[in-house]
């Protein structure tokens, strides 16, 4: 294939990766930014979203789009509820101590993974996309559904941005992030804000998973890669910076796609990872972060 189309394809693929990554990482970033909790189980919430999407879409008969839409609404809600329970039962009792929450979320990771294996099984299972339109470009064909993921993700990101910056909920969250003690003093129910943020973070991961699962598939070990990538995106983008998270996701998604055009894939991953690490070493606050930590 000629170089131009090849690059176009790599860029499209990179954008799809970025779209899903941005949503997942935003969830992690919120939890991280507002609660200062490193949620190691974040990838498992992502996995749960995909697994639930499979369960819901197979339970609902009729057109594939029907099951998918139901999954898109229900799966994140269920995951959010699970996260809420976990937050109330465990994280709150730990007083959000950074080290303790790492161990606790590692524990959650094991629990969720094992439950998925027990009840869902070890197989990879596909979910039918709501529509399967193949866009025919002069050089290659491309999935129309993949393009719609980019649009859906952008929509959700804008909605999140709106909530964070233009509503009272967002204001309360930002106040808590900025200084939780002062926020408490001003009558903000910090405790409830934390619970909400943790649930919201998990829901974002679940939505991302529901979007990706028709082109990927649900598997009980699928949470690890998104977790690592999200960590990277969150740090590169700068803590708690929505704009930074999105830019970093696009950067990492695109570089992952495009570097693979020029190098052997494993070498490409080595170079990309090293590059990102170096960015962090020489700009530890991330690209858009302000103060340290």
């Amino acid at each position: 294939m000629a170089f131009g189309p090849h690059l176009l394809l790599a860029a499209l693929e990179g954008l799809v990766t970025a779209a899903v990554l941005a949503l997942t990482a935003l969830g992690l970033s919120l939890v991280f930014g507002v609660m200062r909790v490193v949620n190691v189980a974040h990838g498992e919430f992502f996995m749960l979203g995909a697994v639930l999407a499979w369960a819901i879409s197979t339970a609902i008969s009729g057109h594939a789009a029907l099951g998918f839409l139901a999954a898109l609404v229900l799966a994140p809600l269920i995951v959010g509820l699970i996260a809420l329970v976990a937050e109330r039962l465990v994280l709150r009792r730990l007083n959000y101590n950074p080290e303790a929450t790492i161990v606790a979320t590692i524990g959650m990771l094991y629990i969720i993974q094992q439950l998925a294996l027990t009840f869902y099984g070890p197989e990879a299972r596909p979910v039918e996309p709501p529509f399967s339109y193949r866009i025919l470009l002069p050089w290659f064909g491309y999935s129309g559904y993949k393009l719609s993921i980019i649009a859906a993700s952008a929509l959700l990101l804008v909605a999140t941005w709106f909530v964070l910056t233009r509503t009272k909920i967002g204001l309360v969250m930002r106040a808590t992030q900025y200084d939780s003690e002062t926020a408490q003093a001003f009558g903000i129910p910090v405790d409830r804000v934390y619970a909400g943020v943790f649930a919201l973070g998990a829901m974002l991961a679940a939505v991302a998973a529901v979007l990706i699962v028709p082109i990927s598939q649900a598997h009980y070990l699928m949470g690890q890669d998104p977790l690592l990538l999200s960590f990277i995106v969150v740090i590169i983008g700068g803590l708690g910076s929505l704009r930074g998270t999105v830019v970093a996701a696009v950067l990492i998604g695109l570089s992952d796609g495009i570097i693979s055009v020029f190098f052997s894939p494993t070498l490409a991953k080595i170079i990309a990872t090293l590059l990102v690490a170096m960015v962090l070493v020489f700009r530890p606050q991330g690209l858009f972060g302000t103060a340290s930590r």
């Binding site: 494993t266 991953k269 080595i270 990872t273 690490a277 170096m278 962090l280 070493v281 530890p284």
Partner: peptide
């Protein structure tokens, strides 16, 4: 390299270097 960072960034930088090391083995 990694000690130029601290806190969470240190955590991620070390993780990424380890990932590079892992990929080099592959």
């Amino acid at each position: 390299l990694a000690l130029r960072t601290s806190g969470v960034a240190f955590m991620i930088v070390t993780m990424m270097f380890a990932q590079v090391f892992y990929l080099i083995i592959l």
